[in-house]
Nucleic acid binder design. Structure first.
Length: 413
RNA sequence: CGGGGUGUAGCUCAGUUGGCUAGAGCGCAUCGUUCGGGACGAUGAGGCCGCAGGUUCAAGUCCUGUCACCCCGACCA
């Protein structure tokens, strides 16, 4: 991609209202543009990041046998009456033709349960799991913290259906493992994201959250210094010791909730009278689990965790492009060399953002590269050309290095 | 939902006790000089001062209403 063709621009000035690091950097770097509090446009760079996050999640969901589907954003309010959740104050409500009462789904249990009911009748149809990646709508009293808490946000939600609790437990553990694999691939692994015991409501003793430890985190968790498992603030009164080892010291930390998994059991199947016939021909309630993870919130979290005073530092797996190629100077030969390298990188399948702007100064291009934060910065200039070299700098490295142009591909491998 | 604040150029903002033709920086356009850390000069375009009403000789400025937006807190499958 050429910067000269790119929709969206970096900017130096940003509203003083914007407080969170992720919103400030993502807006300034031209990844997102704010529509209103908690509602954002995704520009090409931001959409690429979001897409990469979604794809990593998608691959791991598929790996545990979940089927991807897409459910509607809107639903009849009646479905929420059945579960008693139509009084939920985060529900966006509106009217359709003929006064039909509609809602924008804040989550999809009310959609997926009757949907599964259309296809699941027998124990032979179980277990089955479906997921989607879609936007959710929650009329938060106060949206804040950029992408961390929005009114419209992107969400992956997985729902599993089982014949009994043992089978649910088995799948729950599978999903939990998949979540850790996802965080590791996203660059949020290595103890940075911890399993957190949270309230399970009335269905089970606990639900599990996945908390990424970060200064900017709005949640308070208590982390066991022995086993890196945490307890959410809401249950710390009843759970004063580590729920795993029982002996570790619990230390207070800030976290961002990047995932939450629940054993719903029969709450929703009861509400919709969703049953299956067991081997003896007897009707049994379907046992459910649900597993949420928000790609847009993950994107904000990554920026909160990986940045410096100059800009974002994208982990390689989610960076919009791998290489930021800059051409510095107006000499024809330098421009031609940069073009040649650009085409080579494309041919080799290396994702590259080429700052080919003729009127931007060197300083502007260098600042933009830091702000946008691609993993590798490659510079072509009169200086490098004279040495038959290019300059390579990793975004998180202090020093740049000069390498022979012919070994560039090896360096980027 | 409680508290606070803001609406003026594309963006970020200034605009004094009401006073003349509405201000800056950034961005944008043209020209020239620059070209390895957000360059410089010149010229220029760009405003229903959120909206409605009121007070006044005179309103961006004061009053009333209204709409929108934002921040802090509470809340948060």
């Amino acid at each position: 991609m050429r910067v000269s063709y790119l929709f969206g621009k970096t900017t130096k000035s940003i509203s003083a209202d914007e407080e969170s690091v992720n919103a400030k950097l993502l807006i300034r770097a031209g990844f997102i543009a704010k529509q209103l509090a908690g509602v954002y446009n995704y520009l090409p760079l931001g959409l690429r990041v979001l897409g990469k996050i979604q794809n990593i999640i998608r691959e791991e969901m598929n790996a545990i046998g979940a089927n991807e589907i897409l459910m509607p954003a809107m639903t009849q309010e009646e479905s929420y009456d059945k579960t008693g959740r139509s009084a939920m104050d985060v529900l966006f409500k509106f009217e359709g033709q003929g006064g039909a009462k509609l809602v924008l789904n804040p989550t999809h249990e009310e959609v997926v349960t009757p949907l599964a009911q259309k296809f699941v009748f027998s124990y032979q149809d179980l277990p089955v799991a479906v997921y989607q990646i879609q936007n959710k709508f929650r009329n938060e009293p106060r949206a804040k913290s950029g992408l961390l808490r929005g009114r419209e946000f992107n969400m992956k939600d997985l729902y599993s259906f089982h014949a009994d609790e043992t089978d649910l437990d088995k799948y729950y553990e599978l999903a939990k493992a998949a979540y850790f694999k996802i965080y590791a691939r996203l660059g949020l692994g290595d103890g940075r994201t911890v399993l957190t015991y949270a309230s399970g409501g009335v269905f089970s003793k606990y639900s599990h959250e996945f908390q990424t430890l970060a200064e900017a985190g709005e949640d308070t968790v208590f982390l066991c210094d022995k086993c890196r498992v945490a307890v959410n603030k809401e249950i710390i009164d009843e759970q004063k010791t580590c729920p795993v080892c029982g002996g570790g010291k619990l230390e207070e930390k800030n976290g961002i909730e990047v995932g939450n998994i629940f054993k719903l059991k029969t709450k929703f199947s009861d509400a919709f009278n969703f049953q299956y016939k067991d081997a003896a021909g007897k009707e049994q309630p379907v046992i459910m689990g649900c597993y949420g993870m928000g790609p847009s919130r993950v994107m904000g979290t990554i920026v909160e965790v990986f940045h410096d005073d100059k800009g974002i530092i994208w982990p390689e797996a989610v960076a919009p492009y791998r290489v930021h190629l800059l051409v510095l100077g107006k000499e024809e030969a330098v421009g031609a060399e940069a073009e040649k390298i650009y085409k080579t990188l494309i041919k080799e399948g290396i994702e590259v953002l080429f700052d080919d702007r003729e009127r931007a100064s060197a300083g502007e291009k260098l600042s933009d590269a830091d702000l946008i934060g691609l993993p590798y910065r490659v510079i072509v200039s009169a200086k490098t050309l004279a040495e038959k070299s290019v300059e390579i700098k990793k975004r998180d490295a202090v020093e740049a290095k000069l390498v022979a142009t012919k070994s560039l591909l090896k360096e980027l491998a």
